[in-house]
Amino acid sequence: MGATLKAVTTTEGVAPFAFSEHALAECHAIMARYPEGRTKSALIPILHIAQAGNDGWLSVPAMDAVAAVLGIQPIEVYEVASFYSMFNLRPVGRHVLEICRTTPCMLRGGDALIAHAEKKLGIHVGETTRDGLFTLKAVECLGSCGTAPMLQCGATYHEDLTPEAFDALIERLRATTVRSNYTDR
């Protein structure tokens, strides 16, 4: 709050983007689910694929590639990508830790888990560790209130978290070189 919001972004210094052959085939398979002339429906699923193939965030070139696949205006992609909280419009760490901060989690220690995570990683919510491994986010209800406190990392829910369990998770993630994506199977 208080800071002046920047209305436009830049493409300077941003890596180019192209879908892999496999990803492109997946995009077309998704587009085929919708009735003729309604392929724009595939926009959100395809944005997920683009984000997973672009180090976990949606750069302008990545979004423009999505627009090209669907044959729509780039602004239609920007409008949608910026609406949904799971799309990152800025670079993120290899593992994005999304801790639930909403009331049912708060009642079971969600705030304390966030505080612990900040201390453990040495960053604040919204920041990325210097080594580029972790981005910490506080997010709204993930539908896991009975197993609170919890966090999401990529496709995985980590539930009933204690500080110790959190620390163990961090060590496990440190040891892997594979990025955590929502689309992971």
Binding site: A7, V8, V60, E76
Partner: peptide, 17 residues
């Protein structure tokens, strides 16, 4: 080329780039 980006009370009219 312009539209509404972001949501809620930080939604804005923009060309984004």
């Amino acid at each position: 080329v312009h539209g509404v980006i972001n949501r809620g009370d930080v939604a804005e009219i923009s060309t984004y780039i």
